[in-house]
Design a protein around this nucleic acid. Structure first.
Length: 428
RNA sequence: GUGGCCAUAGCUCAACGGCAGAGCACUAGACUGUGGCUCUAGGGGUUGCGGGUUCAAAUCCCGUUGGCCACCCCA
């Protein structure tokens, strides 16, 4: 690497794309606030132990994808590979079980995984996520998942279908796993190599293998939803009824399993055809065992994580990304001798909410006008050498010009923009 | 971590063993009283990096870094 460049799998996001990021994140925040979620910000680093326990040793995330290092005090720290573990740690750390329940939190945060980069997969990526702690009701699952769905829909992806599964709980899962293992052990010779390994390390994941022969075997394998205990079954049925009441389209997909050990009962995801093989735009579910696993009081929880990078790809594919709406309203073009007046006028215009620009390149008046046109300004204000002459306000669309006394030029420009329905840069 | 394809100007690409180019973008000028359109000119490159083969390498070979795609895994 002899040229300066971003680290592998990490990238710069430049204007105008940053504008799209702002919009998506603003929409996510808006919906989160409307749904009663409040923002939590947690450190970008946690003690490695937090992830090792919460995410689970034996998962790829912990075993080979974490950015882990030792700090100067000899502590092992890791960049967060996902959001829920840190939020759960904060929940315990700050005694949130004494807060009015349930506790509803959201975050927009960068995650880090030492993966091989691929389309829609980066070593640093941004997730919007939300969690509800303290409620075991299916209504809580629906509440948090609906937030994700409404955000996606409101951005223009209308045809999303929530894929749902239930992976059971510590009560019903052991017996199920036994049958599951027995089935695949019986067919072990027909499994692909990766799936044979999983049979011993993380058997449920066999179900989402992409190897055709394994998929065929999986089709006849025992499913978690057929092996739920009464409580889990009731929870899953409530979940579906609630979604139906909200008119949110769902599809049961018994092949959705979670790579993370703390998930119980509900597993949900939304896929997008625009994303190639990395097609999960959103993943979520219930993790009733997580808080106690981390040493806190037994507390049910449910949440999701949504990949903003992937969401933007899907929106782009869908033609749902509007053009950059940040533009210049007014351009102050001035003769060199009027630099002070030009700066003061621009400042005054901006104070009135007008997006105003002024030459910073020492250009001639003609070149300044050219810059104004290129910037898409609606009006230009011209300051000529003689400070005693009125200013000229030029409408750059019609070419119409008006001589205006310096004292009233701000009001004049504001009025001209109002007529055009253009006033000020976007607020968010 | 495994495999395939790829890397030339800021961007999109051409040149495919024989003088590194075009379009767009950028800068300046001309023409408009003072911008858009048009025209002219200019700045820009150790062809990702390192090595090798050759009289000669952007071009062929090896390595390396990065990107894309698939697997693994996941958002």
């Amino acid at each position: 690497m002899s040229k300066v460049q971003a680290p592998r799998g990490m990238r710069d996001i430049l204007p105008p794309q940053t504008r799209q990021w702002q919009r998506v994140i603003a929409r996510a925040r808006e919906w989160a606030h409307r749904c009663g979620f409040r923002e939590i910000r947690t450190p970008i680093l946690e003690h490695t132990e937090v992830f090792a326990r919460a995410v689970g040793k034996g998962t790829d995330i912990v075993d080979k994808e974490m950015y882990t290092f030792e700090d100067r005090g000899g502590r092992s720290l890791s960049l967060r590979p996902e959001g829920t573990a840190g939020v759960a740690r904060a929940f315990i750390d700050h005694g949130m079980h004494t807060w009015p329940q349930p506790v509803k939190l959201y975050y927009v945060a960068d995650m880090f995984r030492y993966d091989r980069p691929q389309a829609g997969r980066y070593r640093q990526h941004t997730q919007f996520g939300a969690e509800i702690f303290g409620s075991a009701q299916a209504a809580a699952d629906v509440e948090v998942l609906t937030l994700a769905i409404r955000v996606i829909q409101s951005l223009g992806l209308r045809d999303v279908v929530v894929r749902l599964n239930s992976v059971g709980c510590p009560k019903c899962r052991p017996a199920y796993l036994q049958r599951f293992r027995a089935y695949f052990t019986q067919h072990e010779s027909a499994l692909d190599e990766d799936s044979r390994r999983r049979l011993h390390t993380n058997p449920l994941r066999i179900l989402d293998s992409k190897v055709p022969s394994t998929r065929a075997l999986s089709a006849d394998a025992p499913k978690t939803i057929d092996a739920l205990c009464d409580e889990c079954r009731a929870h899953f049925e409530d979940l579906q009824r609630h979604f139906a009441a909200l008119a949110i389209p769902t599809a049961i997909d018994p092949f959705i399993v979670r790579g993370l050990d703390y998930y119980t009962r509900t597993a949900a995801e939304i896929l997008s055809g625009a994303l190639g093989a990395q097609n999960a735009m959103f993943g979520g579910g219930r993790y009733d065992g997580l808080v106690s696993l981390l040493g806190g009081p037994p507390t049910p929880g449910v949440g999701f994580g949504m990949g903003i990078d992937r969401l933007l790809v899907a929106l782009d594919e869908n033609g749902s990304l509007p053009a950059d709406d940040l533009r210049v309203d007014a351009y102050v073009a001035a003769a060199a001798s009027r630099a002070n007046d030009a700066l003061a006028l621009v400042d005054a215009l901006r104070a009135e909410g007008v997006a105003a620009e002024v030459d910073l390149m020492g250009r001639t008046l003609s070149a300044q006008l050219k810059a104004a046109g290129r910037a898409g300004a609606a009006v230009a204000v011209l300051l000529e050498d003689d400070a005693t002459t009125p200013l000229v306000v030029r409408d750059l669309l019609s070419g119409e010009q008006t001589a205006v006394p310096a004292a009233t030029v701000v009001a004049h420009v504001a009025a001209a923009l109002a007529v055009r329905g253009r006033r000020g840069a976007a607020e968010t």
